[in-house]
Write a protein that binds this DNA or RNA. Structure first.
Lengths: 197, 197
DNA sequence: CGTCCGCTTGACTCAGATCAAACTTGGTGG
DNA sequence: CCACCAAGTTTGATCTGAGTCAAGCGGACG
């Protein structure tokens, strides 16, 4: 794989201007907890590298996966409005994060409308993406699901990564792609590379 | 089913104080368009009643379902930051909506930090819900998916409605429920009523 | 040059969709 | 008040398509 541009710090625009004293770099090894349910909230997080699973305990104590945050994502935004985390956060791989201080963010939101608006924009876009993904996940037929995912430009990396994202096996995805190509709705532009018509 | 409290206007808190001249009531019959892709943006919407499908045209002209907004939801928040809608919106059933004026919202966001913060809270919660639903949709086993949905308190109405929401047939959901009851992880509290342990 | 990993395809299995039907409940109208 | 109807709830039988297991291929990289 060719490393494209300087990966750098891809913290979303809206946090670029955050003063250093309101941010904290964190490294977690696989298995380490970032925070626990009912622990006092400290901030929201940006995933530089790795995977953080958010899990909530049900009444009966079973653990329920609430979210799996991956590289490039922010999470725990809702914790801004809560004094305690409502789920556990655990690194499922070695991870590096940036924590952005809760109090700082809340004050900044109060004092700088443009920051607030940037955050709204950020969240509204996230929302769109999630809604879109949900509709894709609601499609039962593997080929149609794959087609929709392609139309949504979700094949950026491996086919295997795509398969994981749309919750199909990679075999099912390959077969779907072959079928779509045969139908003429998709063209193969290279080994493991496909695009819509 | 007992009609609980006065249903009234359940517009989310954050829009309760919106002046009347910045809101507009709309009625759409099944099949009518609310807006078209590339049309100038007018505002965001709240669904009082009915269903609004958001559809985006792919390069090849196929229509892609982007979202299906239902009673009680707001949608097109992202259109605040865009001069043109990026998808079509069509009523798939007789619907009534409230449109909230875009310019008004943008100004209000600039002038009232608490309004902006309320909106961030609203969107952050939405986000949580979507992330949660995505994880539920990623579960392949029907019984486990149903169990997670129950744990997430998604069985508020019919079993049929739940089935639609988690993208299973109602038969599969009934069978899953039976299995979960037999396993002792779920108890049946009435006809079509179930709860966790 | 060999190993690793992603890609690709085949054979088989099984879980969930589909089709079908009985039953329960609530509401409606004669 | 009762017959009837509509909609949700259950359960059974069958079918199909995605999962699973297995194996060969091709490129990248040391």
């Amino acid at each position: 794989m060719i490393s494209i541009i300087s990966e750098k710090n891809m913290l979303p625009d809206l946090f670029q201007a955050t003063p250093t004293n309101a941010m904290r770099h964190l490294s977690l090894e696989k298995g380490q907890h970032l925070f626990h349910q009912d622990q006092k909230t400290g901030g929201l997080f940006y995933v530089e590298e790795g995977y953080i699973e958010l899990r909530r305990a049900t009444q009966t104590g079973e653990l329920l996966l609430v979210h799996n945050a991956v590289k490039g994502e922010t999470f725990a935004e809702a914790s801004l409005f809560s004094d305690f985390y409502h789920c556990d956060a655990v690194a499922t791989g070695d991870s590096t994060l940036i924590e952005i201080d809760r109090k700082h963010v809340l004050e900044h939101l109060q004092n700088d409308p443009n920051f607030a608006i940037a955050m709204i924009k950020h969240l509204a876009r996230q929302n769109q993406v999630y809604r879109s993904k949900l509709e894709i996940m609601a499609i039962k037929s593997a080929p149609e699901r794959v087609f929709s995912a392609l139309s949504d430009d979700m094949l950026k990396g491996d086919v295997i990564a795509l398969a994981a994202e749309i919750s199909l096996t990679h075999e099912a995805v390959y077969r779907s792609l072959r079928k779509l190509v045969k139908q003429g709705r998709v063209v193969q532009t290279g080994r493991g590379k496909y695009s819509i018509k």
